[in-house]
């Protein structure tokens, strides 16, 4: 076991991990931050996306030991300081960007990473960016719409599904 220390959602956190402990396992099992979901074993679904040093990362495809010293952001840290939904979360609610909600934490974290780099993406850019986030319920349409709305763009022309 080795000791790791990282900042998670602004707070310094330490723990003992094995070499094989994934960042996702450390978050979910050791820290009980179960908002980060695990949807696959093949690094393909994106339900586990968190930010590490500002970049979107599949937390199931990085070891906790590699995040020693890193700045990690998870879905639990996304709400506004007063506990209300942030603009992306509120847009997902408003535009029905979720059904079962399993993919949603990863979708929101990917959307946040996209909007940080590209504050006014086109619809095509949103779809392209979500290539690594799989949703089995919504058909993506309302997720794309929610992200467009969160970026402050008019989505009235994007038909409701």
């Amino acid at each position: 076991m080795t000791k790791v220390t990282m900042t998670i959602n602004g707070k310094s956190v330490s723990g003992e991990v094995e070499g094989r402990t994934l960042l996702s396992s450390f978050l979910r099992e050791d820290l009980h931050l179960t908002g980060t979901h695990i949807g696959c074993d093949t690094s393909q679904c994106g339900a586990c996306v968190v930010h590490v040093d500002g970049k979107p990362v599949k937390s199931c495809t990085m070891f906790a030991a590699e995040a020693d010293g890193a700045d990690v952001a998870t879905i639990e840290g996304q709400a506004n300081a007063d506990g209300s939904l942030n603009v992306i979360q509120a847009a997902f609610q408003e535009h029905h960007g979720l059904q079962c909600g399993f993919c949603t934490p990863g979708m929101v974290m990917s959307a946040a990473a996209l909007l940080k780099d590209n504050p006014k993406p086109s619809e095509a850019e949103v779809r392209e960016y979500l290539e690594g986030n799989i949703c089995r319920c919504t058909g993506y349409h309302n997720i794309v719409k929610a992200i467009m709305a969160a970026s402050g763009q008019d989505v009235s022309a994007i038909a409701a599904e």
Binding site: S43, G46, V49, V52, K55, P56, V57, K58, T61, M62, S110, A113, L114, Y129, L130, E131, G132, N133
Partner: peptide, 9 residues
């Protein structure tokens, strides 16, 4: 290559 999260790492 892949998707944004794959490209980050």
């Amino acid at each position: 290559i892949g998707d944004p999260a794959v490209r980050s790492r």
